[in-house]
Design a protein around this nucleic acid. Structure first.
Lengths: 231, 231
DNA sequence: CGACTCCTTGACTCGTCTCAACACACGTGG
DNA sequence: CCACGTGTGTTGAGACGAGTCAAGGAGTCG
């Protein structure tokens, strides 16, 4: 009855994302997709090899970049959401002692070994995307260095909301937050327990609502205010 | 009597630094220098314009990249030492709401407006330098998110020692640390008072010696251990 | 000799961590 | 069908690291 199913929104998320940084012609899209190859699936918790691996796009699921200290403390450096590229820019290309870890079941699409973004629109789009990614790393530094637990949480939730909205994974102000509180803790430089308390407090303050892994931002303006960073 | 004085070590620091990432031929150096223009001096505390400005090299003095929150809290994102480039890579190019501030009297050399690193050796060297810079941002995130004051301080001092050693500004294990403790505090995400206490503790532990702005690392191995990040 | 800047130290507060127990959902096997 | 484990979330009590407030010390400059 049905023809070939249209790809889910997120399956083309990388295009959505690149297009935010400048119009792409059909030929750009063709040129890009011609260089994309096999799709690989990983289970949650899997450590993806970064060194020596070709660049890739996240098709579905969440992953993160992190570093772990000798005694086990872990700092998550960035979340990787559907549409995010890994290994295209310097940041994610073979930095020493950085791990990429699937936070949920993950599908990624690898680029061919000798990947190059030709033309002039594609490289610009990639560069702009890398810059946005960098901006988020800077936000992260400010959160970790100078914000309270409450501010950090508000700011991160807003960031995730905004990024998910870009790829159509937000309904109303509600989105799926498929990570354990432990992961939020490692991202925010807090303890698991304190993450929980902070979330409870935000709930009591009427800023958020949580049902299972469904997160709803009930009062974005108030959260912006609480997060302080204007971003 | 004397001929033209040889340029001070640090005046060519950018070459020293680029050369660490691959051999440069004379023609590369010539091509690079042909695109470098006026030298500008700034007093300590001066806020350098980043947006719209051409890229530049720090010739002498220290600067930093930072972001300030509405209520005045400030996070220093990176230190810029002699030889460091600003604005060549995405990280330092017109990121929203980032300031570059001279921490000491500063001399920078601007590149021409349409700067491009031609050939294949120069771009590689620039890319490698950007990657090293990125690696330091990651170190910074881990420090801020997951390390204690003592560990942060040890790690940062080692980083600065290493970077200064590269450009010949270390004698023995002693170097000039031309910043107020307030600046260290803003870099490490600590309060000024706690920075002071941490330094005192390191002194008592025999790890460092401080005379004015002269900093000596008395026991690098112990500091590496204390800093935990293997880096 | 002030006046200023920066460093140092003490006393107290507070945010966050740690340890520990319990709650709740889910899956599995008896 | 229920008992039980396991993983995750929740909550309390106490400890501790770091912040804040405040005062004094040391150096420098006019």
């Amino acid at each position: 009855m049905l023809g070939v199913p249209a790809p889910r929104t997120s399956e083309r998320a990388y295009l959505t994302r690149l297009r935010r940084h400048g119009h792409l012609h059909d030929e750009d899209v063709v040129a890009l997709e011609a260089q994309l190859g096999r799709i690989e699936s990983y289970p949650a918790g899997k450590d993806l090899a970064l060194v020596g691996a070709p660049p890739m796009f996240v098709m579905s699921g969440w992953a993160c970049l992190s570093r772990t200290l000798r005694d086990g403390r872990r700092q998550i450096l960035a979340f990787l959401l559907p549409g995010d590229g890994v290994g295209f820019d310097l940041l994610t290309r073979s930095q020493r002692s950085i791990e990429a870890i699937a936070l949920t079941p993950l599908k990624v699409r690898y680029a061919q070994a000798g990947f190059t973004a030709g033309g002039d629109r594609l490289p610009r789009a990639f560069a702009a995307a890398a810059m946005v990614q960098q901006g988020r790393m800077i936000d992260q530094m400010v959160r970790l260095g100078r914000q309270t637990a409450y501010e950090r949480m508000a700011h991160l939730l807003l960031e995730l909301h905004g990024r998910l909205a870009e790829i159509g994974e937000v309904r109303g102000d509600s989105f799926h937050l498929p990570v354990k509180q432990e992961v939020l803790a490692d991202a925010l430089g807090l303890s698991l327990v304190h993450v929980n308390r902070t979330l409870q407090q935000m709930r009591r303050d009427g800023l958020i609502d949580m049902r299972g892994s469904q997160m709803t931002l009930l009062d974005r303006p108030a959260m912006e205010l609480a997060s302080d960073q204007s971003s």
